[in-house]
């Protein structure tokens, strides 16, 4: 008898507070599985951010620092500079990383800071109840874009991975999705690579993961994944955008 699937050690026993069907939980699990597989649980420091994943420190069974909104890459920089042989990762949403924390993520990437960033993009501010995010799609209805995002007034969504790919600092940049089992398997491979890149000292690594928000999108969990596939994937293509194999 072989165990095909069990709870990873890098997750605590605490049940997630996320809404039913929210794929934050899937992404948490993938990160934890990678930590287990790489054998780095006791050597890792996580940085939680502000947003739906604010309570990530309750779930990742590692040392954690809770950062101010958007500042996780700066906090991770401080940790990594003090403890260069530890694995340091941040877990941030789109409001945190692509809006209030734009300066911190861009400069951590530009410095080639040897940290791993998990960037969860669900195209809205989930925790505060579904407001317009920098990643909200054109025309997408949110509580602060009730008639749909009007790009002439609210501007255009930011493709963070593509933007960061113009920099020399990042060693690994990828975008994944978790809208079906095959994509979940691919996402895990990318997350694993993003940790390996750090352990090999190659530089900054970030994986953007497209994630569903059934509650604020007003869709059932399965419908939300279909909506993600139909609407987010064309705007935010998945794949590896930068993948250094060795230090430059």
């Amino acid at each position: 008898m072989a165990t095909m699937f069990a709870r990873p050690e890098a997750l605590t026993a605490n049940p997630f507070h996320y809404c039913p069907g929210c794929t934050h939980g899937v992404i948490h699990r993938l990160v934890a599985e990678v930590i287990d597989e790489l054998g780095i649980r006791e050597n890792t420091v996580a940085v939680a951010s502000v947003g739906c994943s604010v309570l990530a420190y309750n779930y990742f069974n590692v040392d954690v620092q809770q950062a101010a909104h958007g500042r996780a890459p700066a906090v991770a920089t401080g940790i990594k500079r003090v403890l260069p042989d530890r694995v340091v990762f941040t877990y941030q949403g789109d409001g945190d990383l692509a809006s209030i924390g734009t300066a911190e993520i861009v400069h951590a990437a530009a410095r080639g800071e040897k940290i791993t960033v998990i960037f969860v993009n669900n195209a809205n501010y989930g925790m505060t109840g579904g407001q317009l995010a920098p990643t909200t799609l054109p025309g997408q209805v949110t509580t602060t874009s009730p008639s749909g995002r009007d790009v002439t007034r609210a501007g255009y969504p930011i493709r963070m991975v593509e933007m960061l790919a113009t920099l020399d600092g990042p060693a690994y940049l990828a975008r994944a999705s978790v809208h079906n089992p095959a994509q979940v398997v691919k996402a895990k491979k990318m997350l694993r690579r993003a940790f390996e890149v750090q352990m090999q000292g190659l530089g900054f690594a970030l994986v953007e993961v497209l994630s569903s928000c059934p509650t604020n999108w007003g869709l059932k969990p399965v419908e939300a994944l279909r909506w993600l596939e139909k609407n987010m994937l064309p705007y935010y293509p998945t794949g590896e955008f930068k993948c250094l194999q060795q230090a430059v």
Partner: peptide
């Protein structure tokens, strides 16, 4: 189990 957001499914073969 792979799609379960709450890690409540255990699978053995």
């Amino acid at each position: 189990a792979r799609m379960c957001p709450d890690v409540v499914i255990m699978v053995e073969r």
